[in-house]
Design a protein around this nucleic acid. Structure first.
Lengths: 129, 129
DNA sequence: GCTTGACCTTCCCATTATGGGAAGGATTAG
DNA sequence: CTAATCCTTCCCATAATGGGAAGGTCAAGC
C-alpha cells in the first residue's frame, strides 16, 4: 500500500491521521489495522465507497451481522454478473478465433465479425451467427 | 453510441470525420462501419488502444490473419486471467458469508477476516487462517 | 555544528472511458 | 421572423492510482 494512497484515503475521509509536531503523519496500532482492513477489502474488489460502508459497519459493533452479510452478498452477485458477461465475451471470441486460420493468409473471420456484427444480444440468440 | 464518444474517438485519432461547410460532422457509409467496428470491439471488452490496433489490422488488408488471431487470443487470456482472480475472490467471500449468521447478532466472521487477514496469497497456503 | 542523504509534506498533472452542462452558432418548423 | 432543436467547442467530474516538483525535517557522519 503506497504512501500516496494512504494520503488519498485520508483526503476522502476514509481514515483520519494524527500528526506529530513536525507535521508528519503518525499511525498507532489502531490506524494500522484500519489500513489493513482497507487493503484487505480492496484486494477483495470492493470499491472505496463500499469499503467506507464496511468500515462503518466494522466500527459500529452493535450492528446486526445481517447488514454485513448483505453487502458481501451484493458484492458476490456483482462479481458473478460481471463474470457471466466476461464468459459470454470469451465464448464469442473463442468461436471467432477458432474459425480464423491464424496463418499468413489475410482473410479473417474475426475482423469480418467486428466489422459487421451489431450483436444485439437477445436478438442474436436466433441470428445465424 | 453517444455523440460525445464519437467526438472523443475523433479527438484521439481513432476516426477522422469530414465536415460539411457549416462545421457539422458528416459521416459516410464507410465512417459508419468504422464506428460499428469500434462499438463491436468495445462491447467485446477491448480497450480503445486495442481497438486502435484492431482497426489498423482491419485497414491493412494484406496483414496475416495470424496477427489478428494473436490479439484476440491475448485478450481472451486477459479476460480469463481476470475471471480466475474474480472467481478466487468470490470463493473467499462465499466462504466468509457462509459462516456469517446474517441475523440480528453482531458477531461477524466476515468483518473479523477483513480486519485481520493480510492474505498473502502464496504465503497463506500454509498460514493458519 | 554543518553537510548530506533520506524521508516527509503539499500541490499539480496524467491516466481510461464516459457523461454533464454551458455558451453560442446553424438549421428547421411554424 | 421567431422559437425550438441540433450542432459545435470548451470545461469539469468520475475512480483509483502513479509521477514528479518544490520545499521542510530528521538522522548520520565527520
Amino acid at each position: 500500500m503506497s504512501a500516496k494512497m494512504i494520503r488519498y484515503y485520508e483526503e476522502i475521509g476514509l481514515i483520519k491521521a494524527a500528526r506529530r509536531a513536525n507535521g508528519y503523519r503518525d499511525y498507532d496500532a489502531n490506524d494500522v489495522s484500519v489500513l489493513q482492513f482497507i487493503r484487505r477489502t480492496r484486494d477483495l474488489g470492493f470499491s472505496l465507497e463500499e469499503v467506507a460502508n464496511l468500515l462503518a459497519l466494522w466500527r459500529d459493533r452493535k450492528r446486526p451481522s445481517r447488514d454485513v452479510k448483505k453487502l458481501a452478498s451484493q458484492h458476490i452477485e456483482d462479481l458473478e454478473r460481471r463474470m457471466r458477461a466476461m464468459r459470454a465475451v470469451v465464448r464469442t471470441l473463442k468461436t471467432l478465433a477458432d474459425h480464423c486460420h491464424g496463418d499468413e493468409r489475410s482473410d479473417c473471420p474475426i475482423l469480418d465479425d467486428f466489422a459487421s456484427a451489431p450483436a444485439k444480444k437477445a436478438a442474436r440468440k436466433h441470428a445465424h451467427a
